[in-house]
C-alpha cells in the first residue's frame, strides 16, 4: 500500500470515529450543563464556566419515579419479547435451513414484507383491537408487536447461520457412541449458540429502540417504555424543555446499548451482514 493510501485511510478512520462519537460526546456534555444555565441559554459544546451541574442531572433523573418505571418497563418488555421471538424464530429457521416443506418460500417472503411494513399504518387498528382485548397499555400489548416485528430479522439471521452448520457432525458424534441428546447438547448447541445469540442482540436493539408502538399503545407509566417516556418528559416549563435533564435520561437509556456493543461487537456485525446479503 502506498503512503498516500495509508494517510487516506488514517484520515478516513478518524472521520468515522468523529462521526460516530461526536454526537455521543455532545449529549454527555449536555447532560452536565446545569438546569439554570439551560434556562438562561448556554450555547457551546461544553458546559460554560460555572454552568456545570456535576452529577445533579443524573441524580434528578434517577430520582424520578416515572423515568425509573419506564426503564423497568423497557428492560422487562424488551427481554421477554427478545426471548420469545428468538425461540419462535429458532424453530422456524431450523425448519427453513434443514427441512423440505411446502410454504418455505412463503415464510421468507412474508418475513421480508413485514420487515418493510410501514409500522404507523398499523397503530390505528391495533389501538382499537388492543382496547377490545384489554391489553392496551400493558406489557403484553407491546411484547406481541415487538415479537412480530423482530421475527423477520431473527428468522433471516438464524436461517443464514443454520445453513452454515455442519449437521453431519451430529451423526458423527452418534457413531462415536454419543446418545442423540448428547450429540445435540455437545455438538449442535455450541455450533448454533452464536447465531441464536446474535439474533437475540438484534432483536433486543429493535425492541429497545421502538417508539411508534411505545407511544400509541400505552397511555400511562404502566407500560410506557423509555423512548416514549423521554419524549413526554417536558418538565415544569413545556416551552423550555429541560435539555440537560433529558440528556441525562438519554445517556442512561444508551448505557445498555453501549455495554452490549462493547461486549458483542463482532457478533452484531456478523449478524447484520449475514442475513441481509446472502438473502
Amino acid at each position: 500500500m502506498s503512503t498516500k493510501n495509508k494517510i487516506g485511510i488514517v484520515i478516513g478512520a478518524a472521520l468515522i470515529l468523529l462521526w460516530c462519537l461526536l454526537p455521543v460526546a455532545w449529549i454527555i456534555s449536555l447532560s452536565f450543563k446545569s438546569q439554570e444555565a439551560i434556562t438562561n441559554g448556554s450555547p457551546g459544546f461544553l458546559p460554560s464556566e460555572g454552568g456545570g451541574a456535576g452529577w445533579q442531572n443524573y441524580r434528578d433523573v434517577l430520582a424520578d419515579d416515572q423515568f425509573l418505571r419506564s426503564i423497568l418497563n423497557s428492560i422487562g418488555i424488551s427481554l421477554i419479547a427478545t426471548f420469545l421471538s428468538v425461540v419462535i424464530a429458532t424453530l422456524a429457521a431450523y425448519a427453513i435451513a434443514r427441512l423440505e416443506f411446502t410454504g418455505k418460500k412463503f415464510v421468507l417472503t412474508l418475513a421480508l414484507v413485514i420487515a418493510m411494513f410501514p409500522v404507523v399504518s398499523l397503530v390505528g387498528p391495533l389501538f382499537d383491537m388492543w382496547r377490545t382485548f384489554g391489553i392496551y397499555d400493558t406489557w403484553p400489548g407491546l411484547i406481541i408487536p415487538y415479537m412480530s416485528f423482530t421475527l423477520p430479522l431473527a428468522i433471516w439471521t438464524l436461517s443464514a447461520f443454520f445453513r452454515e452448520i455442519p449437521w453431519e457432525m451430529e451423526q458423527a458424534a452418534q457413531v462415536d457412541g454419543a446418545t442423540s441428546w448428547q450429540a445435540f447438547r455437545k455438538v449442535i448447541v455450541p455450533l448454533a449458540a452464536p447465531g441464536v445469540f446474535t439474533a437475540a442482540i438484534l432483536t433486543f436493539f429493535f425492541a429497545w429502540n421502538d417508539f411508534v408502538f411505545g407511544i400509541s399503545l400505552t397511555s400511562t407509566e404502566n407500560a410506557r417504555p423509555i423512548p416514549a417516556a423521554l419524549s413526554f418528559f417536558v418538565g415544569s416549563d413545556p416551552f423550555n424543555r429541560p435539555a440537560s435533564l433529558l440528556a441525562a435520561g438519554a445517556v442512561v437509556s444508551t448505557i445498555p446499548i453501549i455495554v452490549i456493543v462493547l461486549l458483542f461487537q463482532r457478533k452484531i456485525v456478523a449478524g447484520l451482514t449475514s442475513g441481509a446479503v446472502k438473502g
Partner: peptide, 12 residues
C-alpha cells in the same frame, strides 16, 4: 463505534 449510532435510540 460504528455500532453506537446504529444501536442508539432514534428518539435520543
Amino acid at each position: 463505534s460504528i455500532l453506537i449510532p446504529y444501536g442508539i435510540i432514534t428518539v435520543v
